[in-house]
Design a protein around this nucleic acid. Structure first.
Lengths: 345, 345
DNA sequence: TTGAAAGCGATACCAT
DNA sequence: ATGGTATCGCTTTCAA
């Protein structure tokens, strides 16, 4: 059985393909009877218009590309799910592209997506190679940044307030009475990570506390493993910190493991704060206190932005051609944080 | 800047579009000089052939659909990553489709994928509504089942030996000395879950142990939460089991939480075995003993099967038109299992 | 209302 | 070796 085409339907219904096209798209003028007849033939033939053919005539492909570092990282899997759901609401499919933060992979995917004429690209990964990106922008392919700032480019953006996220973590720890803290960071190339640290540091400073540079350790590849190593290094000193702020949950898990290895209890001996509030945070023991990103909202807005379905509530500021939405993070307190040892109740 | 077309290239190079097509596809006969000239024009114009247009003439779309229950479930996210990587190797993109195990969502996605003329569909989720599926099969759209049996359909299949997985879990527990065990299952509709239980039960029987029906509890929606509740119910009795076999890691996490809530220690008071060996299993405390599925291999083979790039080593059995690959699971021992309390060393 | 016909961008067959 | 052209399935004027 071959796939039925618009010609088959037209022939079978005894009308022109133009008529069939009308009913497919619900435009133009057709008598009710004709329309009904055509519809019934379409069903009988199990006819489905080809998106491919339609796209060629200038219509949409109803496909969006989503670039993330790694779809198997729970945070991005959650983002992907949110993007998928919102896209699906508007009839769009999502093509996943895991870049591993490698520039050439990002470039390749971008090029591929262009050839496939996707209707938009949502980027949640760093883009080192800017070439491809600029070409796409020049060809006016809609692009949106999600959860990751794309500084220097005029693209639709939806991110969280990473700076505030860092402050939230700091404030929580300060309120618990911690005074000596350290942080586990992602690669220095990742702006959001830097912002989180800046917020953390500023809030500490406001409380008269300091975060020396050597108290910040960056991890590159295997976040859990590197986090563990870095945490161990940080904690294995006489003047060890009583709390660790980790720039994502994976690092926090590494911290948990590092502490355990040193025979330190969490949170009694050392408090740990994560970031992202992925499923991982709720599953560790102790469960992680972490900063939540509203992944659903992020995905939703990214899709709406790219589809032009989102209109700023306050009349768009003149000048800025692209929108920029900043969502607020939230502190989720679980069991990995407490007062530092030796501090009375 | 508009996207350049084959006509632009032809005009700019002073040749026919046929010639350009030749060099794009590397076929036909063209003199070296001409080819070089055309290539350089293509670069200059930043020309990329449209996959859409090519697909319309009967070529491939280089897109594969992947149906899973939920991409934000770590197991399927890992599967997706494997499929993506292997697809990418052959120039294919992957469209993700999370069905939530809802039949109508599955049907919708199937229909959408058909309209988009994907070159194949990999299914890792139950398909209740068989309608769409049969239509696709009739239209000879390549379909492969991954990690999930699609009984009754003649499709390429790559699964693990779930039965053996269940036996591995049982054997491990039996060797540790457990005699009273229970299991946390997924919905009864999921065949792989049933197979795991069957294997578990058979192995128990072989050791003269029994697994009464009431010792098997199924969870439906929120696996962690349901697992917790079911585990608590199972463990809150005088004759409580000393070990729990859970049909996936999410359920095992629920079991961990349920045990904790009752003040039971894992593994001292109760051993827990998971299934899938997702990242979650390595992150819990205690880390989960679990049965590993080779997700990379599964994804790789599913793609190869659907692309027809996989040839059975032993000359294909006559009769069976589709291949069926069964991979072996492996026991990963971590810290959630030990001898039952009261048993001497 | 309805239908004929001109594209959309690429492929492939067939002359030249 | 090279180019003309029909074709893929659908959308969209433009006449009738």
């Amino acid at each position: 059985m071959m796939k039925a085409t618009i010609y088959d339907v037209a022939r079978e219904a005894g009308v022109s393909i133009a008529a069939v096209s009308q009913v497919i798209n619900g435009k133009g003028k057709i008598s009710e009877e004709r329309r009904a007849a055509i519809v019934s033939v379409m069903e009988k033939l199990n006819y489905k218009p080809s998106v491919i053919a339609a796209a060629l005539t200038g219509k949409k492909t109803y496909t969006l590309g989503l670039l993330v570092p790694d779809i198997s990282n729970p945070f991005f899997a959650e983002i992907a799910r949110a993007v998928e759901d919102q896209g699906s609401l508007h009839g769009y499919s999502i093509v996943i592209c895991s870049t591993d933060n490698r520039d050439e992979r990002g470039e390749n995917y971008l090029s591929l997506l262009e050839q496939k004429s996707v209707d938009g690209i949502i980027i949640g990964t760093g883009m080192g190679g800017k070439d491809m990106l600029e070409k796409l922008l020049a060809k006016s392919v809609p692009i949106a940044a999600i959860a990751r700032e794309m500084s220097g480019y005029d693209v639709e953006t939806v991110v969280i307030n990473d700076y505030e996220g860092g402050r939230l973590a700091a404030r929580h720890l300060i309120e618990l009475g911690h005074t000596r803290m350290a942080v586990l960071a992602e690669s220095a190339k990742i702006p959001s990570s830097q912002e989180r640290i800046r917020g953390f540091r500023d809030e500490l400073a406001a409380a008269g506390l300091e975060l020396p540079p050597e108290a910040v350790r960056a991890s590159e590849r295997d976040l859990v493993k590197d986090g563990k190593r870095n945490a161990a290094a940080l904690l294995d000193s006489a003047e060890r910190p009583t709390a660790l702020f980790c720039c994502n949950d994976l690092l926090a898990i590494g911290a948990l493991q590092g502490a355990k290895e040193l025979g330190l209890r969490v949170p009694e001996d050392v408090s740990v704060v994560g970031f992202d509030n992925t499923i991982l945070a709720s599953v560790t023991d102790p469960a992680l206190t972490t900063i939540a990103q509203p992944t659903d909202k992020l995905g939703q807005l990214a899709v709406d932005l790219i589809l032009g379905k989102y209109e700023a509530e306050p009349p768009k500021q003149t000048g800025a051609s692209k929108q920029r939405i900043v969502l607020e993070p939230a502190l989720i307190v679980r069991q990995s944080t407490s007062q530092p040892a030796g501090r009375s109740n």
